[in-house]
Amino acid sequence: MNIFRLAGDMTHLASVLVLLLKIHTIKSCAGVSLKTQELYALVFATRYLDIFFNFVSFYNTIMKLIFLGSSFSIVWYIRRHRIVRRSYDKDQDTFRHLFLLLPCLLLALVINERFTFKEVLWTFSLYLEAVAILPQLVLLQRTRNIDNLTGQYVFLLGAYRALYILNWIYRYFTEEHYVHWITWIAGTIQTLLYGDFFYYYFQSWKNNVRLELPA
């Protein structure tokens, strides 16, 4: 494992912990998109299906369990926790899951590395992860009032994606037979979606003002 991959995973872990910490300690999910969180739970459920049959390393298994556990806990908190769920703004978080789910499923059935159940689901999870942040970005733009933790959460997620791209470049030049076009294209699109957010995040950080996205 190279340093970019490790840093990417740790940033991903940090993003999830920041969000869980916010929800657990402040008992509020204001500004958090349940739609995005449900999509991530589905991303992990479909991608880590191999957890029972395909042992890569102790590290991989633990990380998979953490991402599965944390994503389902976050969804549980927002839907079921008696205090947290009151802060969920359903009327602002209106993005339709199906608009993302269906195209990803169709695309995974058509464009994949191998047409097997496991591989199609894996590919579906890649496509879905690429766009799963959209409901959250739309919500941020709508509410405009972004608290620090939510801003940090999205920033860390974007940083994780950017580090994964560096990891792929590194692996491409250091490993033989390391070519995964589908992963790379989906991952690059995913990272580009954060471009706008990054711009405003850095602006607010540089000028030391509250993060606000333009309407």
Partner: peptide
């Protein structure tokens, strides 16, 4: 020297 089965990234 074929590619190993499965995916090793998260």
């Amino acid at each position: 020297d074929s590619e190993p089965e499965g995916h090793d990234e998260l």
